[in-house]
Structure formats: structure tokens, C-alpha cells
Design a protein around this nucleic acid. Structure first.
Lengths: 298, 298
DNA sequence: TGAAATGCCTGACTAAGGTCCGGAAATGGA
DNA sequence: TCCATTTCCGGACCTTAGTCAGGCATTTCA
């Protein structure tokens, strides 16, 4: 669906890159271990943080077994680096807090991390540094983009609903006279549920960061609605992937054409649809928020 | 010497980048372990390679204890993946070779690595892939650049001599009528050795990839000679760092000015010296290979 | 008010990774 | 020829990381 197969040379490039970066980062583990404490305990000091943390939270963040966490905390407690307290309310729970010594130890690890990161920058001049940071940012964005999954989901799920609410809020902020979903053409949930329609959600690390809906406007015409990408996830090609999934769904359902409308306050949306080979179309509805209409043959 | 201190936000950027990339690459270890063999054994299969390897070499490359390596090899031998043979000449040594089964197993690990690398590319469209690969290349180059060390060394060391030979060969290939060091103005080794001069070598992962020399032309005038960067290490700012080290050495030795000459066949060298604030100067020698002369106040 | 669920802890156990020491065979130099 | 050195091998031992079963106190729910 997305692109042709990947040439082996590119695979090799990625593997070489991974090797280099992990080798550099491996130096960090060595410097951590040089403090005479196993890695798990060091990471735990870090995760407890200045404000302390519930054990439940620590287990989730570090992916630790309850028994193992308990033992690690016991050794840190013996070393005088953490204290455990029972938070008010539920006497079954425990909360880990760093002692002043624990905070100092954590600061040492922090400084080690800083030093390693700095050692990747210090030998470079300012132009090289700027280039390195820019390239790192690019790699990071694109790796995150590659982590995004796009799939059809029920529109009444909690994440789907959260996306739709965020979408309405976004429109309300951007449209001249605000946006009220009650004023717009109604879109019953049954219209965007199979077999009549579909709803797609994009997720990054499990959290929903985009959505889009498809409804059947006529026997062979699909209509795209509710296309939204979370602000922090823009520029990762999420809208494109959502749109293509919905188009593929429409095609599989027998549609030969899809259409959509958009508002004048969203110029980037128009540019996006044009880039996806949509062409301007005659107005096909009377939605008060529709200013432009597009369509595309599948 | 190289640049002002690094803002904390940039340090944080680098740390975030390292975290993300190592987390992604950590997935590889999981997929390796899923084959039911400890990581050490898998790595060993890789390092032995198709051609086999001496145990001594394996220990050095993997940083393993002799006993531990011996045990790992024994388990791989029992699984029928490697054979050990005594190479002719020294019957104390052993050489590890992969059996056909071992080669097949190694190919499986190779495919797993390929698949992980591919999974960073497949969700992206072609433009994003190109951007990711370009950014990875940039990060890689600059990280390597940051690994380069530049230091004063004796000019008669083996690596220094190798640099000089490579430099002469380079010139011989690029100059119109070739280059013969015997025809050039002589540069006795004593002139580029403290206290009268200096010799600098740049190293990347231990191997020499660049050099430069400083001699005393007059009580307060230094002269830069033999500036060279290995072809595979160009574009990393190595010449700049060598030059600045030699300039600093000259300044510390009481020089108020440095000068140098260069050949018309090396236009990038002229651009480089101009960028480093050298200005054209009157000819100060009659070297047959000198076409342009530069100088700079320290 | 009792039963089930929750949250943490302890003890027993396992696997991986690795160190230390000594032995055996082969080699090389005096 | 003798002796020190090199190279590999094996046994004993250790730490880290992690699992599993069960226990106890507390909380929640019917």
C-alpha cells in the first residue's frame, strides 16, 4: 500500500546506522556500571525521580516484576538512597521517595548522561553541531512516523471519541465563527460503521493521534469525513495514511469515487487533498461549514 | 578550542535521540533471543563469519574471557553449528568454522536484522525514506567526526610515516606532472619535531586519517606543511582541527604569524585556507610545487 | 459482615554472563 | 634438553536479572 520494496543497500545503511548509534549509547551503560551498582538499580533511581513514584507506576514504566522491584527497592533502601512510605488513603500501596543521598546519586547519573551526550557535540564546531542536531531531529521524527499504526476501529470506542472531540475543538479554534457540531450536517454513528462506512484511527505508541471516517453517500460514492491529526503528530504523513486506508476501504466496498468537503480556514487541507489527486468538484451538500468540495476517481 | 559551551537544551535533544534509537534497536535483541539461544552465542555465530576466525581474534572482537568463549563454542559445537580445527603451524591455536548448519543459522539472524531495519522504512513513503536515509547518513558522519581525535605526535612514528606516504601518493595522482618529494623543498624531520616544530595526527577509531606539520620559518613565523586528510574521512572537519591545533602550537611557541603554500591542482585547499582567514601573500619560497602562498596573523 | 480482590513482600528457583584458577599441550629460546 | 611462555580447556564460583508460588495486610463489594 505504501511504497515499493526496499533496496538491500538501504537496509544495510539502516543497519550500519543502528550499530553505530547503539555502540555509542552502550558507552553510557558502561559508565553507569562503573558506579558499582547494577543497571536495574540505577534506572530505578532515575524513574523514582525527585517527586517519588508509586510502585505500581514504577513497575509499569520499567516493565518489572513485582517481586524483582521489591528486591531492588530493598537494596536501595539499605543503601540509604530511598525511603518507602504508605500514601494516605490506601494502606496497601507504597510510594518510593529519594532521600537527599538518593537525589545526589541520581544527579551523578544525570551528569554522566549529560557528559556522554555532550561528548557527541563538543568536538564539533557550531555549524556541525547545528547540522547534527537537525539531522537527529529528522531521524527522530521519521522513526516516530514509522511507528505510527493506522487501522479501522469502531467509531464509538473511547479513543475514537477522544479524537472526534479534539477535532471539534480544533475546528472551533480555527474557524472564523467557531464550530458547533450540532450546526453541521449530522453524521450518525451507524453511517461510519461497517457495512455502511468505516472509521480509522492512527496510533503512536498506543495513543490515538489521528482519525478519519468514511460514509456511503450513494451506492458507488464514498464520502470522507472527520479527517484529523493531533498537533504534536503533524508532519509525519498520518493524514495521508488514514486517507489511503479509507480510500482502499471504499474501493473494496465497491465505490468508484470518493468525495469530501473542507473549510476555507484550512488551506493546508486543500493543498493536501490536491496533492492526493483530488480535483475540485461542484457543491454536493449544504453543510454550513463546507466552502470547498473535492472528488477523486478510485 | 572548538566552540562555546553547549546549551542544556541541545544536551537534552541528544539524550532523547539516543533513548529513542536504542529502544528501537533493542527490539533486535528480543528477536534474536526469540530463537532460543542466548545473545552471546548468536553474536558469536555472526563474528565467526563465513570464513571462520581464530579464537584469539574472536576474543578481541567480542571482548570475551578465554574461558567464557571456550564454553560458548562448546555449546555451538554440540549443536552442530561450528567445528574447531587446529591451523597448520601452531598446534596450540584453534580456529572456529561454521558448518553448513551454522551458516544457515547465521543467515536466519541476518534476515532478522534485515527485517528490523526494514521495519523502520516500510511504513514510510518514498520521499520520507529518502529523508530518513539522508538524515541517518548525516548523523553517522557527524558522530564519526566527533570521534576523531587530533594530537601532536612524533613525525617518525609508523602511522605518521604512513600518512606522509599516502599524502605523497595523493599529490602524485592529482598534480599535472605528478609529484616527487625529492624535487620539493626538503623538510628534515628535525624541523617538524619539538622544540623547532610539530607534527599532528588525526585518528578515527585508532587509525590515522590525517596529518599536518608545523616548522619554524623565522623566529616569529611558523609554516604549515603536509596537510592531508584520508579520502574516506573527508568532510568531517579534520583538516580544520589539525590546522587549528598547529596554529595554537605556533602561537604557544611565540609565533605571531603562520604561512603556507599550495598547488593550483588543489582548489579546495585554497578555499579552505581562505575560509580559515588566510590571505594571499607574496611568494616566500621557490618550491617547484608551490603556486599560491597564504599567511595569517595569529 | 464475610468473601473476593488488590498490593506488596518473601523465599525458592532459573538462566545468562562472566571471573578466577589451575591443568594440559605445544612452542620457543637459552 | 630444560624451562618459561602461549593457548586452549574445564571446574568452581559469583552477580544480575528475572519468574513463580505463596503469604499477609488492606480494601472493596455483595
Amino acid at each position: 500500500m505504501d511504497a515499493p520494496p526496499i533496496p538491500p543497500s538501504q537496509i544495510q545503511d539502516v543497519r550500519r546506522f543502528n550499530r553505530l548509534v547503539t555502540r555509542r549509547a552502550g558507552a553510557l551503560e558502561d559508565s553507569y556500571l562503573a558506579r558499582g551498582r547494577p543497571l536495574g538499580a540505577a534506572r530505578l533511581l532515575f524513574e523514582i525521580g525527585g517527586a517519588g513514584a508509586d510502585l505500581r507506576e514504577l513497575r509499569a514504566r520499567l516493565g518489572l516484576d513485582s517481586a524483582y522491584l521489591s528486591r531492588l527497592l530493598r537494596t536501595l533502601e539499605r543503601q540509604g538512597l530511598v525511603t518507602l512510605e504508605t500514601p494516605p488513603g490506601d494502606a496497601r500501596r507504597r510510594r518510593a521517595l529519594l532521600t537527599p543521598e538518593g537525589l545526589a546519586e541520581r544527579a551523578v547519573y544525570d551528569a554522566l548522561s549529560d557528559r556522554l551526550a555532550g561528548s557527541m557535540l563538543t568536538p564539533l564546531d557550531e555549524r556541525q553541531r547545528a547540522r547534527l542536531l537537525a539531522a537527529m531531529g529528522e531521524v527522530e521524527r521519521l522513526i516516530r512516523a514509522a511507528c505510527v499504526t493506522v487501522a479501522l476501529e469502531p467509531a464509538d470506542g473511547p479513543d475514537a471519541q477522544a479524537c472526534l472531540l479534539a477535532y471539534y475543538r480544533d475546528l472551533d479554534a480555527r474557524f472564523e465563527g467557531g464550530f458547533d457540531v450540532a450546526q453541521a450536517n449530522p453524521l450518525p454513528e451507524a453511517d461510519i460503521r461497517p457495512p455502511r462506512g468505516a472509521f480509522a484511527v492512527a496510533r503512536l505508541d498506543g495513543v490515538a493521534v489521528g482519525c478519519g471516517a468514511l460514509k456511503r453517500a450513494a451506492p458507488e460514492i464514498g464520502e470522507i469525513k472527520r479527517m484529523w491529526t493531533a498537533p504534536q503528530a503533524r508532519g509525519l504523513g498520518i493524514a495521508r495514511r488514514l486517507l489511503r486506508l479509507l480510500e482502499a476501504t471504499a474501493r473494496a466496498g465497491g465505490c468508484t469515487r470518493v468525495r469530501l468537503d473542507t473549510n476555507r480556514a484550512l488551506p493546508e487541507a486543500q493543498a493536501f487533498y490536491r496533492a492526493e489527486n483530488y480535483r475540485p468538484a461542484a457543491p454536493f451538500n449544504r453543510d454550513p461549514y463546507a466552502d470547498f468540495w473535492f472528488e477523486k476517481d478510485l
